[in-house]
C-alpha cells in the first residue's frame, strides 16, 4: 500500500498550541497583576507590562517563525473581542503591529538572532500602543487634551515593556539552562 505524500504544514500543531497557551497566560497574568495592584497603581502598571513582554520574548524564542507576532496579535484580539470586551477596532491595528514586528525581525537578521527578536518585540509593543493611542485620539478628537492622561499611562506602561525585554532575555537564559527552551 502506498502512503499518500503528506504536505508539510507551515504551522505545526505544537507551535499553534504554544501560541494559544502564551496568549492565555499573558492575558491572565496581566489581568491579575492589575487587579492585585489595586487599579491605577503605576508600579503594577509597569509590572504588568514587564510580565507581558517577558512572556512574549519567551514565546518568540519558543516559536521562531515568521508570523508568530501576527498570529499572537490576531488570537489575542479575537478572544478579547469575544470574551473579555476587547474593541473590534483594535484588531486591524494589532494586526498591522504584528506584521510590522515580524517584518522587522526578518529584515534585521531573522529569527535566529537574539537581538532581532528583542527589537522586533519592542517595536511590536511600541506600534500596538501607538495605534491604540491613535484610535483613542479619533474617539476623543473634539477634546484631545483628554488623551494626555491616557498617553502618560501608556508611556509608563511602555517603560515596563522596555524592562520586560531585558527580563525576558534573562528568563530565556534560565529556561534554556533548565532545558525547557532548547534552541
Amino acid at each position: 500500500m502506498s502512503n499518500p505524500v503528506r504536505k508539510k504544514r507551515y504551522w505545526q500543531t505544537r507551535e499553534l498550541i504554544v501560541i494559544g497557551t502564551f496568549a492565555a497566560l499573558t492575558k491572565v497574568a496581566s489581568l491579575l497583576i492589575a487587579i492585585a495592584g489595586g487599579g491605577m497603581n503605576p508600579v503594577s502598571l509597569v509590572l504588568k507590562n514587564i510580565v507581558a513582554t517577558s512572556l512574549l520574548i519567551v514565546l518568540v524564542y519558543k516559536v521562531r517563525k515568521f508570523g508568530v507576532l501576527t498570529l499572537y496579535a490576531l488570537i489575542n484580539s479575537l478572544v478579547s473581542l469575544l470574551f473579555l470586551g476587547g474593541n473590534v477596532m483594535a484588531l486591524p491595528g494589532m494586526l498591522i503591529a504584528g506584521i510590522v514586528g515580524d517584518g522587522f525581525i526578518m529584515m534585521t537578521g531573522g529569527y535566529k538572532r537574539a537581538w532581532a527578536l528583542v527589537l522586533g518585540v519592542g517595536l511590536f509593543d511600541l506600534l500596538s500602543r501607538a495605534i491604540s493611542l491613535g484610535y483613542s485620539y479619533l474617539t476623543v478628537r473634539e477634546e484631545p487634551r483628554l488623551l494626555i492622561m491616557a498617553a502618560i499611562i501608556v508611556a509608563i506602561g511602555y517603560t515596563g515593556c522596555l524592562l520586560g525585554l531585558g527580563s525576558g532575555l534573562l528568563f530565556v537564559k534560565e529556561l534554556r539552562h533548565a532545558g525547557i527552551v532548547r534552541e
Binding site: 501560541i19 494559544g20 496568549a23 492565555a24 497566560l25 491572565v28 498570529l71 490576531l74 478572544v79
Partner: peptide
C-alpha cells in the same frame, strides 16, 4: 482556519 481556530480554542480553554 485551523491556524486561528486551534490557538484561540487553546487560549479560551486555558484562561
Amino acid at each position: 482556519p485551523l491556524v486561528i481556530y486551534l490557538p484561540a480554542a487553546v487560549m479560551i480553554r486555558f484562561i
